[in-house]
Design a protein around this nucleic acid. Structure first.
Lengths: 167, 167
DNA sequence: TATTGTTATACTCTATAACTATA
DNA sequence: TATAGTTATAGAGTATAACAATA
């Protein structure tokens, strides 16, 4: 933990390119989402998880948090906005009364459908356009293991092992 | 511009993995920078550009903005914070009196040096660890063209062509 | 006692528009 | 007239800690 040799040009290149690509992409996507549906990126992700990934359209708060938000209160805040807008409903979880189950509404699905085509268009124009099919496959193949590694990694300040939503 | 077929699993996988990896990495890195040197990520990037990339330790505001910040006022804000902390000095550009040249100070270099080893350590642990050498090369080779494409892309709302810092 | 989620609060960052000064 | 940068201001998002309720 004492010496730390600097990174070489290629490593730095990968790092900076990653961060800048993701930053620019997120910026563009946020703008599209806001214009098309008044959604923040986090709100979109929550709606997408409920409406696209979940067969029931529901999910528990804690499970929704993964990778979307870094604090419990942040999730409560965003879910609250979605609920105010009528895009989502919250109810106590049937099995565990402590939990809250979030469910996408019809209006939520409508907004999701309205926003999705433009979202995809931005991704194609900005992100996918310069990549060949094998490029995209390679990229996914490289980044997915990194994501899994990061998810598994303990939050490097020797804090309690539970990461999920909140320290 | 009317129909927009959905993305397939691989394309979505690349997109979501990219965003989540960059998000988690940025979160971890911001925490380290704040603890080690009281720097925001943007501040770190500005210092790094001045102290590491520029041979003179100086740069013009507009040139510093690229990819770091999305509005001119945001740059002024962050540069102001750096100046308040004594890590940077601002002065009118000699050649163009409208411009402002930002220069890193000794204190700025000291903070940069202090922060860098921990920064690199986070990158190794979280990002580079699961990647082989050829993986890193491939990743850089894939993402750099995307970054260049994005930089060149006009901000898709048919706004005036100048992008740089600010609309 | 541990976990789930909310609330209150404070703070950081970002963005828009109006403005100044130089080219 | 166009560009470089600043300022004011307002708003969105985030995190921390204290809290309530259930397991």
């Amino acid at each position: 933990m004492s010496e730390e040799p600097p990174l070489d040009r290629v490593q730095l290149g990968a790092y900076f390119a990653l961060m800048e690509v993701a930053g620019l992409l997120r910026h563009a996507v946020e703008q599209q989402l806001r214009e098309a549906g008044g959604l923040s990126y986090v709100q979109f992700q929550l709606l997408a998880r409920l409406g696209l990934d979940s067969p029931t359209g529901s999910g528990r708060m804690t499970d929704l948090a993964d990778g979307v938000v870094y604090s419990r209160s942040g999730l409560t805040y965003q879910a609250g906005l979605l609920e105010q807008a009528g895009l989502v409903v919250r109810a106590p979880s049937p099995d565990d009364e402590r939990g809250v189950t979030v469910t996408i509404t019809g209006a939520g699905r409508a907004v999701l459908d309205r926003v999705l085509p433009g979202h995809v268009a931005v991704l194609r124009e900005l992100f996918l356009e310069p990549l060949s099919r094998p490029d995209v496959e390679a990229l996914a193949g490289l980044l997915e293991p990194v994501r899994d590694h990061m998810r598994a990694a303990p939050p490097r300040s020797a804090a309690p092992r539970r990461r999920r939503a909140g320290a």
